[in-house]
């Protein structure tokens, strides 16, 4: 499903990326420790829990929820022939296994892919290692997903 990229698509990507980066800094989700302080449910009884992440994700979902409904009223996006809905619909083993592995990695570091890239702006020590292995892991994951499953090729 290759579509030609128009200049307007690049402008949209630029604006979206800028907003995304701004949001990660303003919300302080760029700080791995702040993310971990949300995930640390063991700290709830002692009052050390930081509920920030919940506010961030609920606010983001609320805006996107309206945008998706708005998109549903249109046949096409503003600068593209069609909406790129994800092809997979089934709950399968890769979804479950992948979510478990990602959950472990996220819990170990407090860094998910967005903040990993956002942190490049501040370049903390050892970030290059995280990004290098994010790249290696991603390549490995994509290789696994490209293997034919039950005689049927799975589209990327």
């Amino acid at each position: 499903m290759t579509t030609t990229t128009r200049p307007s698509n690049l402008v949209v990507a630029l604006i979206s990326g800028l907003l995304f980066g701004a949001g990660l800094y303003i919300s302080q989700m760029v700080d791995p420790l702040k993310v971990l302080r949300f995930l640390d449910f063991g700290a709830i009884p002692t009052g050390g829990w930081d509920p920030s992440l919940a506010f961030v994700i609920v606010a983001a979902i609320a805006v996107m929820f309206v945008a998706v409904r708005l998109g549903d009223t249109r046949a096409t996006p503003l600068f593209e022939d069609h909406f790129h809905h994800p092809a997979r619909k089934q709950i399968d083993a890769p979804l479950v296994v992948g979510s478990v592995l990602f959950g472990i990695g996220w819990g170990m570091s407090g860094i998910c892919p967005g903040p990993a890239l956002s942190l490049i702006a501040f370049w903390p020590s050892d970030l290059w290692l995280f990004i290098l292995f994010l790249l290696v892991g991603s390549a490995l994951g994509r290789l696994i997903m490209r293997r034919p499953v039950k005689g049927r090729a799975v589209a990327a």
Partner: peptide, 20 residues
Amino acid sequence: ATLGGLLIGLASAVLWLGNG
């Protein structure tokens, strides 16, 4: 936290409605 979340939501909205 809320303001940052709204910005992330807006970023997602722009990419979806603009480029699908």
